[in-house]
Write a protein that binds this DNA or RNA. Sequence first.
DNA 1: TGATGCCATCGTTATAAGACGATGAATGTC
DNA 2: GACATTCATCGTCTTATAACGATGGCATCA
Lengths: 92, 92
Amino acid sequence: MEGAEADDELALLAKALGHPARVQIMRLLVRREACVCGDIVDELPLAQSTVSQHLKVLKQAGLIRGDIDGPRVCYCVEPRALRRLKALIGSL
Amino acid sequence: MEGAEADDELALLAKALGHPARVQIMRLLVRREACVCGDIVDELPLAQSTVSQHLKVLKQAGLIRGDIDGPRVCYCVEPRALRRLKALIGSL
DNA sequence: TGATGCCATCGTTATAAGACGATGAATGTC
DNA sequence: GACATTCATCGTCTTATAACGATGGCATCA
């Protein structure tokens, strides 16, 4: 929970949340449990490609997961990562 | 606690923490209550000017405060902001 | 009042982030 | 099989970050 490794981990997770659009996406996914990419695009005032990039950032940080569902992709939060983030922030 | 304003606030605070050096600084200040800038520089493998920039980022986000103490500057965490961050993260 | 020590700021450089439109791959539908 | 839909990726541009050395402003001490 402490040490350079935890610092890096916290920095990584915090950085992923360091943009309003990504915070909005996280809240959306927490509220709706799961969400198709297109719905997320509809909720944000951003181009589809931009939203896709933000989703990629969140996914690479491990905060969300994207499951292919036919032609769509269903995103949902990764509860373990979210818990981890809360724990790391709590340790400050 | 919710809404676009809270999203922006959380994004701002998270962004400030989105770098390992700044996480280290925060931990240092939490551990030591208060800390002179020079001591922080000694703890990090970074140039003085770089550390000063990171301190500026944290200060602008409201996470820390810098009190002038003679020729030195004494930094300490801003408990209200830290609590606010924890609350915002907790609301996810 | 000089000289020193501490810290912020400036100027520079390299790299990363953020946004968009256009293109492409995969799936489902007609 | 042709076509539409959905999403990711690419290419491009603009702006922001991160790092450093060098400079400069202020207190304190001699």
